[in-house]
């Protein structure tokens, strides 16, 4: 019988989040009170709650993550940069940045690269950029092409999908790992609700898993 993974060990490879329209300050407080019992890699919250969450996470080592133009990627480069600057001011450690998916689907890869490059420039190495690939809406050819652009823009972490109905498929984790070896940190996201699912993603090459149902994912660990 295989040894069960320890909860602490698993938590280190998980990112949890409370990103929704109707989230209140009290929801955040309750959420952080519960989650900070475990050494998660990171916690993502909407921009208005970064400052509060930073304070609540003080001393835990859990990284604070900000969503940028999330999840549609319909915001302009200028707005993304403004959001990123705000996230830096409030002490966020990482930013999950949506790409210009319309430009990808229109074959305008120059625009995709320009947008991400300008975001990376604005980050001034003060915040780690994670590019949200959004693989479910891309063809395999587009996935590879965009991963190359992400690398060219200087980004070394990819969140495969945003969640919110766009889920990471195991084959997409495999594809990125196979094509790009160790060039990227790969984060699986969307629909990961059990320990087994998370462990499968890790086995296929994911470095981190995002889950909003962290209790369920930790349940199968000892």
């Amino acid at each position: 019988m295989e040894e069960k993974i320890k909860k602490e060990e698993l938590a280190k490879k998980l990112i949890t989040s409370l990103i929704e329209s109707n989230v209140t300050e009290n929801d955040i407080k309750k959420f952080i009170r519960e989650t900070k019992e475990y050494p998660f890699h990171g916690i993502a919250v909407d921009l208005p709650y970064l400052e509060l969450t930073k304070k609540l996470l003080h001393g835990t080592g859990i990284r604070l993550i900000a969503p940028i133009s999330y999840p549609l990627g319909g915001m302009t480069t200028e707005t993304k940069i403004r959001q990123l600057q705000y996230a830096i001011e409030k002490g966020a450690d990482e930013a999950n940045v949506s790409l210009n998916y319309s430009a990808i689907k229109s074959g305008d890869f120059a625009k995709v690269l320009d947008d991400l490059k300008r975001v990376v420039e604005a980050a001034k190495s003060k915040i780690e950029i994670v590019a949200v690939l959004q693989s479910p809406i891309l063809t395999n050819e587009e996935k590879v092409k965009v991963c190359n652009l992400i690398f060219d823009a200087g980004v070394r972490a990819i969140k495969v999908a945003s969640g919110f109905g766009w889920n990471t498929r195991p084959e997409d984790v495999m594809l990125i790992r196979r094509e790009f070896r160790d060039k990227f940190r790969i984060e699986a996201s969307g629909g990961i609700r059990t320990t087994e699912q998370a462990l499968e993603m890790f086995a296929l090459g994911a470095d981190l898993c995002h889950t909003s149902t962290w209790q369920k994912v930790l349940e199968g660990a000892k």
């Binding site: 990103i19 929704e20 329209s21 989230v23 909407d46 921009l47 208005p48 709650y49 969503p67 999330y70 999840p71 549609l72 915001m75 302009t76 707005t79 403004r82 959001q83 705000y86």
Partner: peptide, 13 residues
């Protein structure tokens, strides 16, 4: 479509 942004960010956008 989340809407949870600080007022200053919304005004900027």
């Amino acid at each position: 479509y989340i809407g949870a942004y600080p007022p200053e960010i919304k005004e900027y956008e």
